[in-house]
């Protein structure tokens, strides 16, 4: 593994630590930050976090390997998650997952040779009223079908993915999304819809007196 920590900005890392009353609490956003810079949790990143938090590298690794969003090897620039928990699976998630594996020629947790797209089957992503759901860099792609999911990955491979259903007007990369998950502002909060149709259904019906 040839990586370097030269791109990890120590000032940013210290600012993350400063959010918390006790610095060890910063371990999770720091791991997201390492992914924002390197695309996955590198050994150098683990060492840097252990230095900053004054804990053993094994303690950082223990946390990094517990949570599935932390990747110990590079994922694609666009990381695709297909919900195959029961409800989405039955509504079509299983078919979408199989179709994408076939279409991309990769297995679950695989990455395309060009490094553009990785694929993972994911658990319930809190959007069941939009099933079947696909996530790309943890942005919502609602009410998916095999063809729309293929369009998503084809667009991603061509560097021109369709916009999320409920998200910013342009899909950000895995690294860019990781920066948001480290708690940093990317200025895109105002983009996209406030709510999709299912979210608003009860409100709409109540206004109709139902």
């Amino acid at each position: 593994m040839t990586t370097t920590n030269q791109n990890l900005n120590i000032d940013v890392m210290n600012s993350i630590v400063a959010r918390y009353p006790r610095k060890r609490s910063a371990i999770m956003p720091l791991l997201h930050y390492v992914q924002a810079i390197s695309g996955y949790v590198t050994n150098d990143g683990i060492e840097k976090i252990s230095e900053i938090l004054e804990i053993e590298t094994a303690e950082v690794s223990a946390v990094a390997t517990f949570y599935t969003q932390y990747k110990r090897k590079p994922v694609g620039e666009y990381h695709i998650g297909v919900c195959t928990n029961t409800l989405c699976a039955i509504m079509g998630g299983d078919v979408i997952m199989e179709a994408l594996k076939d279409h991309l020629g990769i297995e679950n947790d695989g990455v395309t040779a060009d490094g553009k797209v990785s694929l993972e089957h994911i658990e319930c992503n809190a959007a069941c009223d939009y099933a079947p759901v696909v996530m790309a860099n943890w942005e919502f792609y609602d009410n998916q079908s095999v063809s729309s999911a293929k369009d998503l990955v084809d667009g991603a491979r061509a560097g021109n993915p369709p916009a999320p259903t409920r998200g910013p007007s342009k899909l950000v990369t895995f690294k860019e999304a990781s920066l948001v998950l480290a708690g940093l502002d990317d200025g895109l909060a105002n983009e996209g819809t406030q709510a999709g149709e299912p979210t608003l259904l009860g409100l709409k019906l109540s206004k109709e007196g139902k």
């Binding site: 009353p21 997201h32 949570y67 969003q69 998650g81 994911i122 992503n125 809190a126 996530m135 860099n137 943890w138 942005e139 919502f140 999320p164 409920r166 998200g167 910013p168 950000v172 999304a177 948001v180 998950l181 708690g183 502002d185 990317d186 895109l188 909060a189 105002n190 996209g192």
Partner: peptide
């Protein structure tokens, strides 16, 4: 001191809460 512990797989929701 208060904390909101939000799941990590919802980038746009994180943006909205952070803002």
């Amino acid at each position: 001191h208060a904390f909101i512990y939000i799941r990590g797989e919802v980038t746009h929701v994180v943006r909205r809460v952070n803002q």
